Amino acid sequence: MKVVVATDSFKGSNSSRRVCEAIVSGMKRIYPRADYHIVPIADGGEGTIEAVLEVTSGTMKTIRVTGPLGKNVDARFGLLPGGRAVIEMAEASGLPLVDEQERNPMLSTTYGTGEVIKAALDAGCRELFIGIGGSATNDCGVGMAQALGFSFLDKAGKELPFGGGALSALDRIDASKADPRIADLQVTVACDVNNPLCGPKGASRTYGPQKGATEAMVKELDAALAHCAEIIERDLGPSIAELPGSGAAGGLGGGLVGFLDAELQTGIDAVLSILRFDELVKDADLVLTGEGKLDRQTVFGKVPAGVASWSKKSGPIPVVAVVGDIGEGFEAVYDVGIDAVISTVNKAMPLTEAMARSRELLVETGERVARIMKIGSLLPGE
């Protein structure tokens, strides 16, 4: 019997791997000889590099790059077998890299993210997965593109300085010296927001204030992004202004489409794609997934919903969600491929106790799942 265990972390208590291992430990009490496949999962945000490397036997690389405000920082990325790489833009251009009193999206740049992409190209990668959560920037990915050889020129023919505020002076884009390897590059972007580039729900208005933008800055940045989108469409072709997700990471979502012909996907779909989850789950007899709390929001791009959906693509594989807490509206998950939901909590207890005993409860739940399975195998068919 092949069992795939692919869960998110239980935040505050156990990592994805520890959750998976605990569930398997419990199941082995009943099915000790089953073929278990542990697949720790992240949803494209923080921790995705580590989760992907665990499954793919990849290697972590650290390089020195340009940080959001020009200071050098160390940024990690993962090299995967088959000429692939996994990148988190926050490693090079993230908000935690900038002291709160120094945050200024008028000046911050994604140049360092472009340097990470270039390092992946230098390592022979031709397929990139990029998570774009947690940015400190609002430059439409222009800094990223500058690191890859694109030139962004003002009316005097001078290169624009870093930052979203400079985009209002953009007159033309020169791609003649862009890295030629981009032409053969396949880029998948983990993007869990649908914000367009500009307007009331755009990058500047929605996310600019948390990056240090004043009301006056928001208006200026929004106009600058709209202008940049017009020049991108005129000089390069892609229309990104109204593209859902283009406003993610201060417009980096749109910039990756405009400059690298990237594909925007939900975070979990992008992660499962780079993990080649469809191959991992092939011929599985059972899939177990889970997260700390499962409720009506789970169907909107959370790990259990993604795992269930991808599993069902491979056939009528039963999918069970093991969760710490079952919230309101959880029944919606039955419509996306989850067949049963089982909580680890086996009696009334405070959250602090449940978290402290998380591994113990996960092991017990794994055993309960296996016992229910054994009963099912003894029942007559319909």
Rank of each mutant, 00 (worst) to 15 (best):
G202F: 04
D235E: 00
P209T: 05
K201C: 12
A175G: 05
I182T: 13
S176R: 13
T206I: 14
R172G: 05
G199I: 07
I231Y: 06
V218W: 01
P161C: 14
A216F: 00
L197S: 09
N195S: 15
E159N: 12
G202R: 08
A224Q: 03
P161A: 14
Q210A: 07
V189D: 01
E230I: 09
I231T: 12
P180Y: 14
G202D: 02
M217S: 11
A203K: 05
H227L: 08
I182F: 11
D171Q: 13
V187H: 05
I232A: 03
G163Y: 03
A178K: 00
K201F: 14
A156V: 05
V193I: 15
G163L: 07
S204Y: 00
A226T: 12
M217R: 03
D171F: 10
P161W: 10
D184G: 14
G164L: 00
A175W: 05
L170C: 02
F162C: 12
K201N: 14
G164R: 00
A223G: 05
R234M: 04
Y207W: 11
I182E: 10
G164E: 00
I232R: 01
Q186F: 01
D192H: 08
Q210Y: 03
L225C: 14
C228K: 02
Q186D: 04
G212P: 01
I182A: 12
P196G: 13
L170T: 01
K211L: 12
E159S: 10
M217I: 06
Y207D: 02
G202S: 10
Y207F: 15
I231G: 02
A213K: 01
A175I: 04
C198W: 01
G212V: 01
A156Y: 07
I231M: 07
A203Y: 04
S176T: 14
V189I: 09
L170G: 04
G165L: 01
A169T: 10
M217F: 13
V218L: 04
L167T: 01
C198M: 02
A226N: 13
C228E: 02
S176P: 09
P180S: 14
L197G: 05
D192A: 04
A216R: 04
A224S: 12
L185M: 09
P180T: 12
S168N: 06
N195D: 09
G208E: 06
R205E: 15
S176W: 09
A213E: 04
K177P: 03
P196E: 13
E233P: 04
G164W: 00
A190T: 08
D179S: 05
A175C: 08
L225M: 14
S176G: 09
